[in-house]
Structures are given as structure tokens and as C-alpha cells.
Amino acid sequence: MNELLDLVSATARLGGPLALAAMGGLLSERSGVVNIALEGAMLASACACGMVSAATGSTALGLFAGLVAAVIVCLLHALAVLGFRIDHIVSGIAANAVAFGVTGFAIKVAVQRGAELKFTPLPQIVYIACALILPVVIAFMIQRTVFGLRINAVGNSGSKSAEMGVNPIRVRLVALFGCGLLTGLAGAMLVSQPEHFTANMTAGKGFIALAALILGGWRPIPAMIAAFAFGLFDALQIRLQGTPMLGVEVPSQFWASLPYVITLIALAGFLGKSKPPAALGRE
């Protein structure tokens, strides 16, 4: 019983950042902007949140800094994609590289100066609640509110939306701002567990969130479920290390790679065909 509780809490802790980042990706991609910069935005937020919290001793200020950092990364991506009209993937690669470099740089300078890195985060349960409630809110917003429908519209065709009097650039900017807030929360949640920032601590979690989004067919609730399923596999991988199954010793790496293999199978269309937004990455 205790073990089960343990597993549930580990799943929530590991899946939460993925769910939040996947929601950020959802806003961005439903509006038509491919966003592999989720990784960089999360990393920037984790870094800013961890280091500002530790430096000022204020959890609220740290969280605010994390949100701002992620919003900056997402808006830079928006500027590159919507303003300079460069390829979405290229911009994402550049944003991730810059975020990786700047955060790695910042932590090294902080360590060199002997700065305090440990901080007191918000309780995990706050973030977990966000990760569970926000997808429901976003599902409602996407389907039932004017703004949600506008996001859908510009994600299907920016030019047709423009003809109907919806400014696609403005809608996408707001969507990417929201994406920044959500990935910011994801980064803050990620750094709240070890309670200090370490270099490259996202280690590909942004890409896994993207996979959860795709596995969920760009829909909020299924994407959240996929994110927590990935969290479960991650939790299992740590616990099942070296335990034999059906008489065969299954290496822990098998469990660790299972989510990626499942995503591949899903992308191959064997778990039901999911359809990306029509204008995704094209405008």
C-alpha cells in the first residue's frame, strides 16, 4: 500500500512538468506554431526560478522570474517565426541552444562566486494541482470560448482567419505568451524537487512533453493523460531496476525507453490516427 502511494506521488511529481509543458505546447501548436523550444523555455524557467528564489529568498519572486524567463523564450520564438518568418524548427533549435548556453553560463558563474543555490520552493501539491486542473481549463477554453475558437481557426488557416477579421499574428502571440506561462510553471515545478538548479536539468523533458502532446492528438485531456503515463514509466523505471519479470531480468533501460517506443508506434498511426492542426508550421 505504501509502495503504491509512493508510486502515485512519484508519477505526479515526474509527470506534472510534462503535463504543464504539454499544455504550453498545445496552445502554441493549436495556433499553428511548431514549438520545439518548449525544452529551452522550461530550462530557462527552471534556472531563473531556482536562482532568483535562492538569491532573494522569496519563493514568489522566484516563480515570477521563472515565468518571465519562459515567456521571453517563447516570445523570441514568436518573433523569429512570425516576425522574421524563419522556419519553426530552425528557430526552435536556435532558441534551445541559446537557452542551454545562457543557463549553463549563469549557473557556472553563480557557482564560481559561491552563491547560495538551495531555496524553499512552493509545496509540490500546488504544482500538481495546476497540472491536473489547467488541462481541464484549457480544454474548456479551446472548445467553448471565443478566444479558444480563434486559436483553432488560425491554427487551421491563418489567411482564412484573417479574411474573417481575426488577426492571426495577434492570436498566435497571445497563444505563445500563454505557452510561456505554462512552460514557466513546468520549469518551476521541475526545479522545486531538487530545490536547486543544475545545468541542463530538463534533459529532453520538453521533447517528451511534445511527444505527449502528439500522443494525445493535440487535445488537452488526452495529452495530460499521456504526460502522466510518461511520468509513471519514469517512476517505474527507477523502482523496477533489476527486478525480474516472468523469470527474465528486464533492464531498467527497457522501461525507460518504453514511452519513446510507444510514441513511435503512435506516430506510425497504430494507436489511432491523430491529425495535427492544418496550418501547423506552414505560416
Binding site: A80, I86, I93, A94, A95, F100, G101, G104, K108
Partner: peptide, 22 residues
Amino acid sequence: PKEISAVIQGLIILIVAVMRYR
């Protein structure tokens, strides 16, 4: 910190993309 190399490389990608890969 040597991580500045990643920043420089990322910015180069961005500049080249804006100049050439629109």
C-alpha cells in the same frame, strides 16, 4: 564559462536563418 559557445552557436543559427532561410 565555456557554455558561451552554445549561445554564440545558437545566435549564429538565428542570424543565418533570418538572412538565408526565410
